[in-house]
Design a protein around this nucleic acid. Sequence first.
RNA 1: GGACAGGUGGCAGAGAGGCGAUGCGUGGGACUGCAGAUCCCAUCUACUAGGGUUCAAAUCCCUACCUGUCCUCCA
Length: 454
Amino acid sequence: MKLWDELKGNFVAFKDKSRTVKMYVCGPTVYDTPHLGHLKTYTVYDALAKYLKFSGYSVLYIQNITDIDDKIINRALEIRDDPMSLSEKYTKEYMDIMRKAGIDSVSFYAKATRSVPDIINQIRVLERRGFVYRLPDGMYFRVWMDRNYGVLSRQVPENQVSGKRAKVSELKEDPRDFVLWKFRKPGEPYWKSPWGDGRPGWHVEDSAIILRYLGTSFHIHGAGADLKFPHNESELSLMRCMKGNSNICKAWTYSGVIRINGEKMSKSLNNGISAREILDKYSVEAIRYAFLSSNYSSEMDFSWGMMDEASQNVSYLNRAFTRIRTMKHGAVEIGARNYAETFFGYLDDNFNTRMALVTLYEVSSEIFKHEEISEDEAGILNKMFMVGQEVLGVIRNHESISIEPGTVVSLLELRKRLKQMKMYGESDSIRSALSESGIIVEDSGEDVTWFKER
RNA sequence: GGACAGGUGGCAGAGAGGCGAUGCGUGGGACUGCAGAUCCCAUCUACUAGGGUUCAAAUCCCUACCUGUCCUCCA
């Protein structure tokens, strides 16, 4: 499989399946409930990790949780809560959302507060090498010492400075310098360090966690596109200064930001839709379909209409999958092998989930045109749809049925007999009763299919 | 102002020099006790504008305009 590397601006190929793919994705700052943007990014990387596993790699997938930060402290102050219990609450909330969204491929969540020793170690090393200086409010990183600062975001130094909106401390040696260790203020949570009590800066948190769990050489770095500068730039700079060269991560990848009414969804614009809200309104499969139906790196306009469309498409794929598994085996061939090749080809090509879904859709419509299919092809199609179910997560798992399947079958037997006697009122009431318990019954001629709704 | 992405049919969104992807929507039809589902047909001078390169450009080059992201916390 190949992925686009934003740092070098080229594709990198993954071939060696004996190697563990090491993957890092920037996690959330837990001071509020997650919104759609979080959900989108983590869905994309969840699917990617699962696809790599499916392809035969073992995957080590680390994500951080920023559970100490200015925003957490400020929010806690606002609502007169303790910062640590606030971040704990929203960490639980985040985990709950992830579980509900079927995102379960992360090997380990590294909390910032649990990584303080690693962070201190990193600052120490950097200090020894002369990258660190002290100001009254904290320890700072000397950006000018890293000549390559700016390569990731292609920001020339003048631009890093000319952002006139940033209020830069007069005391900093260079306006670009950022804080590694922030000294405590009264009432704030703090940790002990060689420089004084305080807490870690944001950028060094990620670089320390990466170094600790993945080392100075890993494969995939993922984040929302809005984190590229200054966060990832600084994170990369720190790792570079630790290692001495830039060969740290093979593929810097970005998940395109979600827009709503043409603007980025963000807290400051107050145009966010919470992850919880959408999970209440739509099935996990529909949500994942919506997110995976555009390229992971491109921006995405969100609308409720697109969610409805995704729901419909998911339902179509589900029906097709049911049909594949219940179809008679015969001589008919639809070119399943070609479809499968195309399907996996797209996924291997920079994880083009959109086109993979289109392929799944085309296969589905082919399936509905025939009454039977060869056993061989049924097997191939089954494999494709299993990937749709377990990797992309856009196909419902049919096993979770609330009523005993045996009960359903006997009710349908009864209904069939009633229909033969043309007692339609009675047969329809069985159908609607089942529908109320979430079982949809559909006739097509003599054949009856049933499945769980939602 | 700078950097980086884009501008494609009613909408969403691929493609990337020569066959009008795909889905949704809309109109018609088939099937059907009903409902649902599914299928078939139709919806077509689609590629922001203006120049250029070419036998051929939505696709390459230049210019302009427009939109978004980042340059402040952000997934």
